Amino acid sequence: KLATQLLVDLAEGCHTHHFNSLLDIIEKVMARSLSPPPELEERDVAAYSASLEDVKTAVLGLLVILQTKLYTLPASHATRVYEMLVSHIQLHYKHSYTLPIASSIRLQAFDFLLLLRADSLHRLGLPNKDGVVRFSPYCVCDYMEPERGSEKKTSGPLSPPTGPPGPAPAGPAVRLGSVPYSLLFRVLLQCLKQESDWKVLKLVLGRLPESLRYKVLIFTSPCSVDQLCSALCSMLSGPKTLERLRGAPEGFSRTDLHLAVVPVLTALISYHNYLDKTKQREMVYCLEQGLIHRCASQCVVALSICSVEMPDIIIKALPVLVVKLTHISATASMAVPLLEFLSTLARLPHLYRNFAAEQYASVFAISLPYTNPSKFNQYIVCLAHHVIAMWFIRCRLPFRKDFVPFITKGLRSNVLLSFDDTPEKDSFRARSTSLNERPKSLRIARPPKQGLNNSPPVKEFKESSAAEAFRCRSISVSEHVVRSRIQTSLTSASLGSADENSVAQADDSLKN
Rank of each mutant, 00 (worst) to 15 (best):
Q90I: 07
R186V: 06
V216Q: 09
L183H: 12
R106T: 00
P157E: 13
R186N: 11
P239N: 13
S76Y: 10
L124S: 04
V204E: 00
V64T: 13
S87A: 09
S76W: 13
K56M: 10
L73A: 13
D130S: 08
T154P: 13
R80H: 04
V200Y: 00
H88N: 03
Q227N: 10
M84K: 04
L85K: 00
L232A: 03
S96A: 11
L183D: 11
A118D: 01
V132F: 11
R244W: 03
S49P: 03
S211M: 12
L188C: 06
P160T: 12
L208C: 01
H77N: 06
L189T: 06
L124W: 05
L188V: 08
V225F: 03
Y214K: 03
V204P: 00
V59M: 04
R80W: 01
L60E: 14
S178T: 08
Q190R: 06
Q190V: 06
I101F: 04
L242R: 05
C233S: 04
L70T: 02
V179Y: 02
L228N: 00
T162D: 13
L236G: 01
L91C: 14
G61I: 00
I105S: 00
R80L: 03
Q90D: 12
K193N: 09
P100G: 06
I89K: 00
L245K: 02
H88T: 02
L212R: 00
L73E: 10
S155N: 12
L73S: 12
K69E: 01
R123N: 04
D54H: 03
K215M: 05
W198I: 01
F135S: 03
T241K: 04
K193A: 10
H122G: 08
I89F: 01
H95C: 11
V187F: 01
C139T: 05
C191N: 01
A118Q: 02
A78E: 01
M84I: 07
S230D: 13
L121V: 08
E145I: 07
Q67C: 04
A248S: 10
A75E: 06
N128F: 07
Q90E: 12
H88C: 01
V55K: 00
Q190A: 08
T220N: 06
L158V: 12
L188K: 00
P180N: 06
E250H: 10
L121Y: 11
L205F: 02
F252G: 02
L205R: 00
S196V: 09
I218N: 02
R175Y: 10
R175D: 09
R213I: 04
E145V: 12
V55I: 06
Q90P: 02
Q227R: 06
S150A: 09
V133Y: 15
R134C: 06
G238N: 13
L66T: 02
V140S: 06
E243Q: 11
G156C: 09
C191L: 01
L73Q: 14
Y93W: 00
G166H: 12
Q67W: 02
I105N: 00
M235Q: 01
H95L: 09
Y143R: 07
K153M: 11
R175T: 14
L192N: 00
P164Q: 09
S234A: 13
S182C: 12
S182I: 04
Y143P: 08
L192D: 00
S178G: 13
L201T: 01
S178M: 07
V81Y: 00
V86D: 01
Y71V: 02
E210H: 10
S103L: 04
S182A: 06
V55H: 01
